[in-house]
């Protein structure tokens, strides 16, 4: 490959810029990780900034886990994420598929109802009243049921189903498949990238769910991870009010951050291939 000087300069410049952007993204994460692994005294001596730990300790994590609230909250969050996402995907697919079929009676009406909720909602208090009236207050289901379907995701998935060629459905029908079979054996398998992507959206949403818990849950043993972690982090954001309040050390705060985000970070690489596909491709391959 013979390249002109101009090309080389161009490459050099773009690589430099990309490297800088990469660095800017990685450094804060690295900082959080390093501080969480460095002995507290070491962090203090360095003025609170450590990028590469000289010594590694898991003290902060041990302390964090000895706090009874965290493992409990972790279970709650995992439950909400797994069950919640399963319910989300089932309901979203079951709503999106019929809406994507051109011949469905009343399609426009139902579509309108879905879109309507994108633009208008009842507001906090009416929603709270419904959650209360259905007996969901102070149960984990308050974190799952009110958000069981996100209309936007229904539209995305509907779009995906619509892009599947009609011929496939026709041939399936000729071969005697009924609608359930078409959905489960043809539409869903062909839409795996979009389902994965939407599943990831839902899962991340559940994992980070915070507001719903603050609103609907008063029982401490049902608090999800983010509420507990936020409690640890927010302590340093405001001046102390009570003499008894213990401020968690910066190493503990950072280990809480890692603890709360690591599972999601760990899942990303496995979903990435579907993720990029789901986001970019609007139709099936060959």
């Amino acid at each position: 490959m013979v390249r002109g000087l101009e090309d080389k300069i161009f490459n050099a410049v773009s690589y430099t810029i990309l490297a800088l952007v990469g660095l800017v993204t990685v450094v804060p994460l690295l900082y959080v990780l390093s501080v969480s692994l460095t002995p507290y005294a070491e962090v203090l001596k360095n003025g609170g900034y450590v990028l590469f730990p000289k010594e590694i300790t898991f003290n902060a994590y041990e302390k964090l886990l000895s706090n009874s609230a965290i493992p409990r909250a972790f279970q709650i969050t995992i439950f909400v994420t797994v069950v919640g996402t399963a319910i989300n995907l089932t309901l979203t697919a079951l709503l999106a598929y019929p809406l994507s079929r051109k011949g469905m009676p009343g399609r426009r009406l139902f579509l309108f109802m879905v879109v309507f909720t994108l633009l208008f909602n009842g507001g906090i208090i009416p929603t709270y009243l419904i959650v209360k009236a259905t007996g969901l207050i102070d149960t984990v289901w308050a974190l799952i049921v009110p958000n069981a379907i996100w209309s936007f995701n229904v539209l995305v998935m509907k779009g995906f189903f619509e892009n599947l060629p009609e011929e496939i459905f026709e041939s399936a029908r000729i071969d005697g498949a009924h609608e359930w079979r078409i959905l489960l054996r043809i539409a869903v398998p062909l839409s795996i990238p979009s389902i994965m992507t939407i599943g990831l959206f839902y899962a991340v949403g559940h994992w980070n769910s915070f507001f719903a818990a603050i609103m609907y849950i008063t029982d401490r043993s049902l608090f999800p991870l983010q509420v507990v972690v936020r409690e640890i982090l927010m302590m340093t954001q405001q001046p102390l009010e009570n003499a008894e309040d213990m401020v968690p050390t910066v190493t503990m705060q950072m280990s809480a951050v890692i603890f709360a985000s690591l599972p999601i970070i760990a899942v990303y690489p496995f979903l990435q291939k579907h993720f990029t596909k789901g986001m970019i491709i609007g139709s099936i391959k060959g």
Binding site: F79, I87, T90, L91, G135, L136, I137, D138, T139, V140, W141, I144, V145, T218, D219, S221, L222
Partner: peptide
């Protein structure tokens, strides 16, 4: 699936209900 969700709530929260 809604009903299932409803049924499960009894097991999960046990004594926490009834404010």
């Amino acid at each position: 699936s809604f009903m299932l969700a409803g049924c499960g709530s009894g097991n999960e929260t046990g004594g926490a209900e009834g404010s």
